[in-house]
């Protein structure tokens, strides 16, 4: 519907405004939309929208965790997704003009679209449940977090993850850099996502 499209568009602008207007270098922003499962009554956070900025040293980080087999798999999935969106049959591997390697952070952002959090699970769920921001800075802290998503983020090169509860869901910010908690960005996110504009 046009309403859904309008909301989707404003979400994108807000996420972009958070990332591009921040003093720090954030790699991505995701809005996890809150809802209640009609069948079970469970609280659910699922993908609402995301903005991927990337990181300046994408190329350098590229070979961090991914093997040749990983890259083959990622490229194949991307070709299939491109085909799903465009409606055209997927090109053969050697016919694809755009066949750049898929970075770890791109891949993490992409797989995030399929994730969801039930009843306060994960860092986004915890932020929603406690109505307070969850901020994890440092690869070692992410790696040892009691949250599968945080550990996965670290494995894909993310060093900082912040989850900020807002009206209707949670805004998650991720960065390949080390960013310590600051009230400026949490305040900005809250302002952007509660203004209703």
């Amino acid at each position: 519907s046009s309403t859904a499209c309008f909301n989707q568009e404003t979400l994108q602008y807000r996420l972009q405004a958070v990332i591009e207007g921040a003093r720090e270098s954030w790699t991505y922003a995701i809005f996890w939309q809150s809802s209640v499962d009609a069948a079970t009554g469970a609280s659910l956070l699922a993908w609402g929208d995301g903005y991927y900025r990337g990181c300046d040293d994408d190329k350098r980080k590229l070979r961090g965790a991914s093997t040749a087999a990983d890259q083959e798999h990622r490229k194949r999935v991307l070709r299939e997704l491109n085909s799903l969106i465009s409606g055209a049959p997927p090109p053969a591997a050697d016919e694809d003009a755009v066949d750049e390697e898929v970075t770890d952070t791109e891949w993490f952002f992409l797989v995030s679209m399929a994730q969801s959090f039930v009843d306060g699970a994960g860092l986004p769920g915890h932020a929603l449940l406690t109505a307070s921001a969850a901020w994890v800075a440092g690869a070692d802290r992410l790696a040892s977090a009691a949250c599968e998503r945080a550990r996965q983020a670290q494995a894909f090169g993310i060093q900082t993850m912040a989850c900020i509860p807002v009206g209707g869901g949670v805004v998650e910010l991720g960065s390949t850099g080390l960013i310590y908690h600051n009230a400026e960005i949490t305040g900005k996110v809250r302002a952007l996502f509660t203004s209703g504009t």
Partner: peptide, 26 residues
């Protein structure tokens, strides 16, 4: 493709389009 929820599909389309732009301008 009907199984792909609309929000994810819109985000995915945007991500792929921007990625194509990034790659071709690099």
């Amino acid at each position: 493709s009907r199984a792909v929820p609309q929000a994810r599909k819109a985000s995915l389309a945007r991500f792929l389009e921007k990625r194509k732009e990034r790659v071709t301008s690099a």
